[in-house]
Each structure stands twice: as structure tokens, then as C-alpha cells.
Computed example of a mutant assay.
Amino acid sequence: MKREIKFRAYSSHNHKMYPVSNIEWDIDDHIWVTADDGKNGIELIDEEANLMQYTGLHDKNGRAIYEGDILRVTTGEDGESYVATVKWFGDEDYPAFDLEGIPAAWNYDANALATIFQSGVETCEVIGNIFEDKQLLEGKQ
């Protein structure tokens, strides 16, 4: 099985999201990210480049879902929904993409993101990302 591995980067300097074409580390462990602004490649260095990995999933509109995306999850049964963030939990001894900020009323026995896509009962829609659309997370429980 072939899995597509790709990244995007948010530039904290330019305040823009870019698709990534290359990632390199130098001998001093500095990260160098080559991104595409649509005209020419630009270089992002260290903390300026906030990298987000593609999950391999697409939302109900066919849009690629990345780490850091804000999703609206809606049930097909009653149309109720909530907003949560896609997060990589590898740093917390849970090597998987999953959702962070799921309201307590919504209970999943296992990985919520996997359960949503396997069950087909709920749908996901990318409504923003944590860098450009933080206001979408305001007022959440």
C-alpha cells in the first residue's frame, strides 16, 4: 500500500500557509523548509516554519485534512455537530492522528478520527486551521 506523505507549513513571519516541497536539517539541527508561494520557492527556517503533516484523509468536500486543521464533525442521524482540532499524539505515547477538544457528551471507544471515517455515521468538514482561524475555537467547552 502506498501512502502519500506531504506537509504544509505556516510561516509565522509571512502569516501565510504554504505547500512544502522540501525539508532539510543542517549539521546544527536547524530545519530548512522550502515552500511554494505560487511564483517561486521561499525558505522558512526553524520556528518560522510551523510544519503540519497530511493525515491521508479528506473531508466531505474532498479537501485534504492536515494536522492543525479545525474540523466540524456532524452526525447524519440528528445533525448535531462539534468543532475539534486534528492533532498528532505521538509525543504523548499515542502514535496517531486524532481529534483534540471533543466535547464530553461525544464518546468514542477508540481513536475518534478513525471511528468517524470507518463508521460513516458522522461527516467531517475542514473549516479552518489553528494558525489562521483561532477564533473558530473560541467559546468551545
Rank of each mutant, 00 (worst) to 15 (best):
E24P: 05
M52W: 08
F131T: 02
C124G: 00
G120Q: 07
G62K: 07
E47L: 04
K39W: 14
F117H: 01
G76N: 05
W88P: 09
V121S: 04
V73E: 00
H30L: 01
Y108M: 01
I70M: 06
Y108P: 00
L137T: 14
W32S: 08
V20I: 04
S81G: 02
V126C: 00
E100D: 07
L137F: 05
W25M: 11
I102M: 02
V121G: 06
W32Q: 10
E24Y: 15
Y10D: 03
R72Q: 00
E47P: 09
F131Y: 14
L99W: 02
I27Y: 13
M52C: 10
D36N: 05
D29F: 14
P95L: 14
W106H: 12
E43M: 15
D133A: 14
G76K: 01
Y18E: 12
T74V: 09
T75P: 00
S81D: 04
D109W: 10
L44K: 05
I31A: 11
A104G: 10
C124F: 00
K16N: 12
G56K: 10
S119V: 02
K39I: 14
R63V: 15
S12I: 09
N40V: 13
I45M: 07
N61A: 15
V121E: 04
K87Q: 12
E125N: 02
G68C: 14
N111F: 08
R63Q: 12
D36K: 08
A35S: 06
T85V: 13
S119Q: 03
D26T: 08
T74I: 04
Q53R: 10
H15S: 11
D28E: 13
L44H: 05
S119Y: 02
V121H: 10
D46P: 12
V83L: 12
G79Q: 02
T34F: 05
W25Q: 04
K16H: 14
Q135A: 08
E92P: 07
E48T: 12
K87Y: 09
T74C: 04
T34V: 14
M17V: 15
P95D: 09
L113P: 06
K134W: 13
Y94M: 11
S12L: 11
G38N: 08
Q135Y: 09
V20P: 04
G68Q: 11
Y108H: 06
E24I: 03
Y10Q: 03
E122S: 03
D37Q: 13
